[in-house]
Design a protein around this nucleic acid. Structure first.
Lengths: 228, 228
DNA sequence: GCTTTAGGTAAATATCTTGTTACTTAGAGG
DNA sequence: CCTCTAAGTAACAAGATATTTACCTAAAGC
């Protein structure tokens, strides 16, 4: 080693290969917080609150443990922030769905498919929610963010149901909350229990053709539940 | 200690308050293992694999940590055993359901209610399964027990569907596995996410009248899904 | 250029936690 | 009664782990 590292040479420490690890990050509070949040989301999703390691979160964020405490205060506060972001992201994606102008059955089907696809493409969301429920919701419970963000959570579905009932394609008396929960349930359960499910049913629940079968079953099921 | 307990005096497995905690247990390998398993089930269900503490498991079992390693080998092996037992218990309860002689729709409804009630009365089962899925099913995957126990898991439901199709009350082409998963999903999701759900929907999902509404919705949903 | 401050680093600390070791003793079988 | 095995206890070792402390330095504002 000639003189390769002049001053900030924070090399090997982590086993990553390319340049990104070498290049010390420019001082950028916002970027560092983002890296920490992203890393934390991944670690908490992978190992849960108790299983995740602050050291690993810092390392994967290419940041220092000290920064975690500087920006977030504690491991639990970081977990709370991660959860809030996860919910915000889902709600944001939901809001982008424009279902109001669609025929009710088409709109509902689209919502079912959206929910499924979101879970499929954001597996972290599911394990984070599971972790929070293991902890009895204490982090979200004391977080104003979720409460404000999840206001009118059922509005869209209520509108949809009302339109469908009016036009006669949906039956009357459907509870929007029960339906919302059911739409989530049919996808969430399948995906969150994909490992034990694959063992119990002796097949790969994550095989593409199995996923395909599942979403089609879910769409048909929900349409039958609301059908007039 | 007079002689109060003759020999198998395994007092209240858990929630003991006064004397029983003091009285040293008679030497009884089987009883000790049972106490450890029961305590471990509770702790793992409450805190997950990473969050549970071997010390606490031993203490609550009124046993010694050493005994855990003596009888089960490691924390993970104990977790595996707890899981195996949890699944066996569910399957055992399922087997006791005698649905063969019932009219298909009645039998199916009974199965939906059974599944719901089992989850409701055995909340440990849900969190244990969640924990195992967080760990990608590695413990059950390498356990011969579950594999042998869950053979023919769909047999009952397949029979039921066949009978209902024959008599015309169920439509044709229903996949027993998809239906089985859906029956579990509608109950499991609601209960496993009861904390975050109560926050998001601003109501107590565990209030008796809410539970009542949910199971009725689930029964109707499943019957609609299979309806001819 | 100089000062100040906020972004950043490394090492220390105090506490936990799993698993082990060395030891004690009940009680079954002779 | 005596012996020997297996149930049980308590204390320890080694390594993690969350959080803090002491320190450094880039770069923004003057």
């Amino acid at each position: 080693m000639t003189q390769a590292e002049s001053k900030e040479g924070n090399d090997s420490l982590l086993g990553k290969n390319a340049a990104s690890a070498r290049t010390p990050h420019k001082r950028d509070a916002e970027a560092t917080q983002k890296r920490i949040l992203s890393s934390a989301k991944h670690e908490f999703a992978m190992s849960g609150l108790a299983g995740a390691r602050v050291d690993v979160i810092a390392e994967k964020a290419e940041a220092n443990k000290r920064m975690i405490y500087h920006y977030f205060g504690s491991k639990e506060a970081l977990f709370t922030k991660v959860l809030e972001e996860a919910y915000s992201d889902l709600y944001e994606a939901e809001r982008k769905l424009k279902l109001d102008h669609l025929e009710p059955r088409v709109a509902l089907e689209r919502f079912v498919r959206f929910t499924w696809t979101y879970y499929l493409e954001n597996p972290d969301f599911i394990t984070l929610v599971n972790s929070e429920n293991l902890h009895k919701g204490v982090h979200l419970g004391s977080s104003g963010v979720l409460k404000s963000v999840s206001r009118n959570r059922l509005h869209m579905l209520e509108n949809l149901l009302a339109r469908g009932q009016k036009s006669g394609v949906f039956r009357k008396g459907i509870d929007a909350m029960q339906l919302h929960i059911s739409i989530a349930a049919l996808g969430y359960y399948y995906l969150t229990n994909r490992y034990t499910g694959s063992i119990v049913f002796r097949c790969d629940l994550m095989a593409p053709e199995m996923l395909e079968k599942r979403i089609e079953f879910n769409v048909e099921s929900i349409l039958r539940i609301v059908g007039a």
